[in-house]
Simulated scan of single mutants.
Amino acid sequence: MGRIAFIAGICLSAAALVQAVPFSPKLHKNTALVLIDIQNDFITGSLNNARAPVILPKVYQLLDDHEWPFIVASQDWHPIGHVSFASAHAGKQPLDTVNITFLDTPTKMEQQTVYADHCVPGTWGAGIEEGVQTRLYYLEGYRTPVNYIKKAQDHSVDSYSAFADNQYHRFTTLNSELTLHRVDTILVTGLITNACVRGTCIDGIKLGYEVILIEDATETLSDEIKASTIEELEGWGVQVMNLTQWESTNPTRLQRRALKEL
């Protein structure tokens, strides 16, 4: 009887421990938060954009007020001499274009826009914006898996999408990581709307995910470019809404209970 009582005591203690860890009413099951290239160079650095800082309070809100089973933070991670750098092409200036060959098909060409050098590993510009990075450090050290996707590391091909390079020559680990965490919906934010955000959203649709773009947590160079890109993404099947709209359609468990009681 003593042994049975001892085992029963262990079971009761374990049950009490489980009950002491409450179910989180804010956990968005099967939905990953995807932060695209919220890096210093795209905000105040070499490719600075005066409109970019506007998204930060919304991104902070998503990190502060919600719990996620998985968070993705992508970063451009360009080696010196990258194909997207104007400095790598004699006589070219930022925003010029060059023709480059496909890595797998030398007879096939694509047009590449070139920019000022940006997001070189080891530089301040490649780092994630301080407020976002501080929150990610806290979350990944506490309760949330965070996967940092370093993209466009190949000298010879650019990568807008966090899933793959522009030629689909190489894929990142993102799709397999989302599958591992049983994610079927991605909530996309970040910079810039018509480039890396666009590429990630389209590839997400191609791979079968439900893709939601939070339009006030993404920015680009002008209202016109943003509106045109959003129209295109909606044509692909991307759901576009602002953060207030998304939060209203994704109430927490406690909010749903309160609504039922009204």
Rank of each mutant, 00 (worst) to 15 (best):
Val132Tyr: 00
Val157Pro: 08
Phe163Cys: 12
Asn250Arg: 13
Glu129Cys: 10
Glu224Arg: 02
Thr173Leu: 14
His181Ser: 11
Ile192Asn: 13
Val183Arg: 00
Thr229Gly: 06
His155Val: 11
Ala126Gly: 06
His155Cys: 01
Asn242Pro: 03
Asn175Asp: 09
Thr220Pro: 00
Leu180Tyr: 07
Ala195Phe: 14
Trp236Tyr: 15
Thr134Lys: 15
Leu233Phe: 04
Trp246Met: 09
Leu233Ala: 08
Val238Gln: 12
Glu247Val: 02
Tyr148Trp: 00
Val132Ile: 15
Lys226Asp: 14
Gly127Ala: 15
Glu140Lys: 08
Thr218His: 04
Glu234Ala: 15
His155Thr: 06
Val197Ser: 12
Ile192Glu: 12
Val188Lys: 06
Lys206Ile: 13
Thr249Met: 04
Gly235Leu: 07
Gly199Cys: 11
Gly141Trp: 01
Trp236Leu: 00
Glu215Ala: 04
Leu139Phe: 03
Ile128Lys: 01
Asn147Lys: 08
Asn250Phe: 05
Asp223Ala: 11
Ile128Asn: 03
Trp246Ser: 06
Glu234Gly: 03
Ile149Glu: 01
Phe163His: 12
Tyr138Arg: 04
Thr252Pro: 09
His155Tyr: 07
Ala152Lys: 10
Asp203Arg: 11
Gly141Asp: 03
Leu136Pro: 02
Ile128Ser: 02
Pro145Ala: 11
Tyr142Asp: 10
Asn147Gln: 07
Phe163Arg: 10
Thr144Ala: 05
Glu231Ile: 10
Asn147Gly: 00
Gly131Trp: 01
Gln167Ser: 12
Ser159Leu: 04
Lys206Glu: 12
Asn250Val: 07
Gln167Trp: 05
Ile212Asp: 08
Thr173Arg: 13
Leu180Asn: 12
Asp154Arg: 14
Leu139Ile: 12
Gly131Arg: 05
Asp154Leu: 10
Arg198Ala: 14
Glu231Tyr: 07
Leu136Cys: 01
Leu174Asn: 04
Thr229Arg: 01
Phe163Trp: 14
Ala126Arg: 00
Gly127Cys: 10
Gly190Ala: 14
Asp203Ile: 13
Glu140Asn: 02
Glu215Tyr: 00
Glu231Asp: 14
Val197Lys: 05
Glu130Pro: 09
Ser248Gly: 07
Asp223Thr: 05
Phe163Gln: 09
Tyr138Lys: 09
Ile230Ala: 10
Ile205Asn: 03
Val157Ser: 01
Ile149His: 00
Glu231Thr: 13
